[in-house]
Design a protein around this nucleic acid. Structure first.
Lengths: 221, 221
DNA sequence: CGTTGGGTTGAGAGAGCTCAAGCCTAGTGG
DNA sequence: CCACTAGGCTTGAGCTCTCTCAACCCAACG
């Protein structure tokens, strides 16, 4: 019944290594925000929660990890954890590691990096309680991906064209078209951004604290 | 500015192949629910939305794919797409393929498979509008992972112990502790499951359609 | 110039949140 | 072995906020 950490027959090609960790008791932190990424983990038994803690101290659970799950992959691309992983009960884990630069040119490894970025994005776009905060985070995330920097006099602004409608943003964030519309308007009134249809302009500084990640993503391209 | 589909220097090791697709015009479907998985895609330009369509016809956007994104990986593990991918504007894509069984024993490929499962789960646990449907889907997903089948006379039931508190479920689903509590109670009253603290029992048939979307939620209104 | 899809705004009602209190169970220490 | 305690769970009563529904505006396009 207990799944093996890794197939026994798997050779050590591609410099992949697994290492069994001593059992973690309930409530132990596997990693904390800011920790360097040192490998991913396979859950052998037990359970963990991956939580994002915001500045207000509110906790949002991003994922529950159960036996068989691979966790921590989302930190591979940025090289650093920005979430907190805590055991919900006594758990046994295996750490999976490989050299950071060694196999970087390996095609499957490239795919893994992309997958890591995917996971990281999905983790970042968690469910916010308020439509205003959710919409703000959404626009900033999009801005980081497709925004172009413009000079507007002395100020640097990010300009972008949203590819999707208000309705589709709502279908993504879990709100209605009207709520998204009102949230955008409120953000405009707060001076955080300038909206005209699907064209959005915002100060470059605003867009910067969206996730503050993806330094490696440019190199990956 | 245009990112390359793939590093030129990357050799064809590990039998990975890329293939550039002709530009897709706005509104074209890249894949539909039920389509076989034939490879993942890298977005070169344009934008797409990945949506889940439930039986009621309601669309939920799971992801917006922008240039540089890798999409479709979540279908690798199950081998079949259960979502719909549609271009939001004219888009250029590259398909990335590799033999299904060939490199299955390759450690990085194993990691990819795990990542695929992760993505698939995260895609499945999208934001539901109603707490009842969200809680139902959550419990069923957990049951599929850690539930044990029991014989209770003639009926087959799934028994499981939730590793997390009601508060943590709420922090995951985006509701408060009380709302989760009431949702569980309502599910109990509807006869869908039996809750005693963290012990949950439910008919094996119920747990089976974990991913089958909420046909009952619309009727519940 | 008319049409169409997307966007915006307003008013009312229902749903989930807040606050508060009581219960129940597991773990602890005498 | 048992009482105790603390945290989790449950339930209730108002209130706020988002959804619903409806109308109107607007720009793009033929």
């Amino acid at each position: 019944m207990e799944p093996r950490c890794w197939p026994d027959g798997a050779p050590d090609r591609c410099a992949l290594s697994t290492e069994r960790l001593p059992p973690l008791s309930k409530g132990m932190a596997l990693w904390r925000p800011g920790d360097d990424y040192t490998g991913s983990y396979l859950v052998r038994s037990g359970a963990l929660k991956i939580v994002a803690v915001d500045v207000a101290g509110d906790e949002q659970v991003l994922h529950f990890a159960l036996p068989g799950d691979l966790i921590g992959l989302e930190a591979m691309a940025p090289g650093r954890h920005d979430s907190l992983a805590v055991t919900l009960e006594e758990s046994v884990l295996c750490r999976v590691r490989w050299p950071r630069n060694g196999a970087a040119s390996d095609p499957p490894m490239q795919l893994l990096l992309r997958a890591s970025r995917n996971l990281h994005q999905r983790f970042g776009s968690g469910r916010h309680a308020e439509p205003l905060a959710a919409t703000r985070a959404f626009v900033r995330a999009i801005a980081q991906q497709i925004g172009r920097e413009e000079r507007r006099g002395a100020a640097r602004v990010i300009r972008l064209q949203l590819p999707m409608s208000r309705l589709e943003i709502g279908q993504y964030l879990g709100y209605t078209e009207e709520t998204v519309c009102r949230a955008l308007r409120r953000l405009h009134q707060l001076g955080e951004l300038d909206v005209k249809g699907r064209i959005v302009r915002m100060p470059a500084a605003e867009a910067a604290d969206a996730c503050a990640e993806q330094s490696t993503s440019a190199a990956a391209r």
